[in-house]
Nucleic acid binder design. Structure first.
Lengths: 193, 193
DNA sequence: CAATTATGTATCGAGTCGATACTAAAGGAA
DNA sequence: TTCCTTTAGTATCGACTCGATACATAATTG
């Protein structure tokens, strides 16, 4: 493998520098298709979030930004025809967000997908190391900041699998039914089991 | 360990999402001490770069940005008294960059240092995995983009160790003498051995 | 010596993003 | 019910980002 020839990360300081460089590349990738980095982040989030989590507030928590900033990004996306907003019938303060067809057809042009291509050139041991290392680092950092993990139902303490029959689950927190499809998306209310 | 409880990265797509979230945190950290993300990135780079690499051009290559953007960031840093510019006597188009005392005393306030604190809560296996995984990913991605690796002399094909005596090395490319201290900084001209 | 290439700056426009202030709806307590 | 507090989101400001384009100057190449 050529891949480990360039960088010799011997200590945490080197790892920190690599994290910075990685972040830079992601930001740079965010200028694809005439969008901005924050706009791509919002689209990616909405594509992965379950229906309870497709709101400006949840996106704000995910991004760690302020409400005002997220509001502006969402307005830009709405102007561009990439998201639709609708009122939440249960809570009229709240706004539901939905990707449009245009947004769905734009997702394959996400430049950060190039990282998946890069991973394909790595061997299985390196890929496994990446998953373990990133997972541990993110968990530690997000926990230290008091942020939300945004995980899947499968590892959530509120998940009650099959409580309404096969493939029909329940969220114990929101008291809402969950389909198999719901359970494969990330959730703003996620809490580790 | 709590750290691996939150995220279960099963595949490359999950790893990609983690990379995105990591990048977001780094960007957010970049608003410390009244500076902006791009300004912190420039300061961190200049603190790590050897004397051949402390130029606007090298910083542009490192950041993967355009010359104009980097020029503006550097002007903002100069106005803030964090960098000094000086003419390169050998090439009068080129500008040498130097951190001021104020910048050096600001470096400990870099919020991305919190990642080092997060790493300290990880066990040795996780840390090792992080280094290996990040290294492999960055190498692969940067190679795919045709970017420069910005490594250390030790792993550079131009490095001629001790050619001028003990602790006195030589860069075969630039034909310049290198001290031990020079060799511990990253270089824009780095090429893997 | 002319053409080309390289280094860096000037300017523009849409967007970012923290800060602050604001509106409106929900929820709780007396 | 009527306050009061909390929550969800928007409006506006100012400094900065960042790609794009155009430009000036210096080095290099033919």
């Amino acid at each position: 493998m050529v891949s480990t020839q360039y960088f010799f990360a011997m200590n945490d300081s080197d790892a920190l520098a690599m994290i910075g460089r990685l972040a830079r590349i992601v930001t740079h990738d965010g200028h694809a298709a005439g969008l901005k980095p924050a706009q791509w982040e919002a689209l990616r989030y909405l594509a992965r979030a379950n229906r309870f989590s497709r709101t400006p507030g949840a996106l704000t928590a995910y991004l760690g930004a302020t409400k005002g900033t997220v509001s502006q990004t969402l307005m830009a996306l709405e102007r561009a025809g990439l998201i639709r907003k609708s009122a939440d019938p249960a809570d009229r303060r709240s706004v539901r967000l939905e990707l449009t067809e245009a947004a769905l057809s734009l997702l394959p042009r996400d430049e950060t997908l190039r990282f998946e291509a890069a991973m394909e050139t790595m061997n299985e041991e390196e890929r496994r190391a990446l998953r373990i290392g990133l997972s541990a680092l993110l968990s530690a950092r997000i926990a230290a900041d008091g942020g939300r993990p945004f995980g899947l139902c499968r590892e959530c303490r509120h998940f009650r699998e099959g409580e309404r029959g096969p493939g029909k689950h329940l969220c114990g927190l929101l008291k809402e039914p969950l389909s198999d499809e719901d359970a494969t998306h990330i959730c703003v209310e996620h809490e580790a089991a």
